[in-house]
Design a protein around this nucleic acid. Structure first.
Lengths: 135, 135
DNA sequence: CCTTGACCTTCCCACAATGGGAACCTTTAT
DNA sequence: ATAAAGGTTCCCATTGTGGGAAGGTCAAGG
């Protein structure tokens, strides 16, 4: 199987497969005598694993750790749980931050008439013009 | 006022101030005869505007647009409202995605005993091992 | 047999934003 | 005078992904 097929079956672009190989996330595959990378079902399996971890928002570093644990028969599931739990915390922190931004923006948009006149509470707020009444 | 003072008053690092100047987000300030950048209250005001927009999650491109509108006396507040509304949409999309990840991860962590034995539903799921019962 | 198109290879560049640091100059205070 | 603090430019790194050029390879069809 060439890199294009492996890409199609794993959902990882050929470009990224080469990159993952370059940074050592995956092992260099065998090559044909014309220097084409050859992949088998195992490699595709690894790529799918990576793809799924990435879809869950794990960084490549975290993915690398999960991959090691996956391939390590003596791993402790507690290690995996720890990575996942820490990751949940990070995601939740990010969600909270984004929600704060949305809340502020919604308030501003709500106060903005959106007509042709230049009075714009959004810009006023960004510019810190003190409003007549706090909110 | 030197760049360090402007940085302190605006909350934007000196490094970033120079970068914003380089990419054309802000105008090059006057220089002293010893080539130091001189800033006044106006420039600091602009930097604070930028800082606040960035804190609300606007990209530098969006911030640039908002800055233009802010400095344009003939701007329509509808334009600003549109940028802000679009941005809210993006943020909410991101929040939904993150919440989906958290939900999946929490389920997996919940199913993971986290002890010393290698049975780990998190890795099993990442590896797409079909579980006995779908969820 | 030879061309054409699809696929592979490596290598370099780009993004968004930010930080680190080197090498060097200026200002200020001791 | 000298040392510390802060300025200047320039280059590099990050994270993860994509684009594209220049060239090699393979399969199909005229």
């Amino acid at each position: 199987m060439n890199i294009g097929q492996a890409s199609g079956k794993s959902g990882v672009s050929a470009k990224m497969i080469r990159y993952y190989e370059q940074i050592g996330l995956i092992k260099p595959p065998l090559r044909t005598n014309s220097n084409y990378r050859r992949y088998g079902a195992d490699e595709v399996h690894v790529l799918r694993f990576i793809k799924r971890a990435r879809n869950l928002g794990f960084s490549l570093d975290e993915t690398s750790a999960l991959l090691s644990l996956w391939q390590d028969r003596s791993r402790a599931s507690a290690d995996v749980k720890e990575i996942a739990t820490a990751h949940i915390g990070e995601l939740e922190t990010k969600i909270t931050e984004l929600q704060g931004m949305v809340k502020t923006l919604k308030h501003l948009v709500h106060c903005c008439q959106g007509n042709d006149r230049p009075d714009c509470p959004i810009l006023d707020d960004l510019a810190e013009i003190p409003s007549s009444k706090g909110h």
